[in-house]
Amino acid sequence: MRQANENGMEMVRAEQVVKRFGQLVVLNGVNLTVKRGQVVVIIGPSGSGKTTLLRCINHLEKIDSGHIYIDGQMIGYREVNGRLVEDREATIARMRSQIGFVFQRFNLFPHKTALENVIEAPIHVLHQPKNEVTERALSLLEKVGLAEKANVYPHKLSGGQQQRVAIARALAMNPKLMLFDEATSALDPELVGEVLKVMRQLAEEGMTMVVVTHEMGFARDVADHVVFMDKAVIVEQGTPEQVFDHAANERTRTFLGMIREE
């Protein structure tokens, strides 16, 4: 179902998204727009719903009401006789193949080398020829600084290296949107920088990104738009300056104050 979006400028449009886990309301009418090429950073305390929102964007989680559009097309559901029904697996899979997702725990395939991880989906999902894919994969691994680790298995890589492979794996699908779910939260502090560097580079190259993170420095430097979530709603959003330096809402200030004390 195509939704009119101004000049095709909107990559993600979440409308009144509600999500419950049993009795617990995790997203309570969330509205979010991400423009093409924009870097949106979502911050907030744990349990605020920010990770859930991210996972709803690529339909890893179903939503209970509301709509989410990716580049004008509704994801997860389609309209049948005026009602919304869950979409076919093939359609959802196809939409997901255009959205890159980077997990907190990397989730590399342990039985495959770094290179094999990166080429797996382009070959078996997009049916691209192996030698083309391998070439592109090697240059992607080089881009994230891991060309020499191409034939190494994940368990022999550091966390930062694994995460960079994971980013390369997502990029291999040529996504129009990249979602980062606390990509550095599981890393030792000294490894965080190398991953943030890759993310920063992607942003500079114009990738549309939605990043859930606790890295406030990254948010301030790289984000075009910052969203603060708490208790299942978006409390405040704006430019990094607006949110970090001139937060209008008390809850935002409290949260940022607590972060600053660390």
Binding site: A93, E120, V125
Partner: peptide
């Protein structure tokens, strides 16, 4: 097999059957 494996496979656009065959069952 860690649930994250299926999520990673799905997020790359794999359908359940493909993910099972190439990612989950080998592990």
């Amino acid at each position: 097999v860690d649930a994250g494996q299926m999520e990673a496979a799905k997020s790359l656009g794999m359908r359940y059957s493909l993910a099972m065959r190439r990612i989950i069952l080998p592990q």
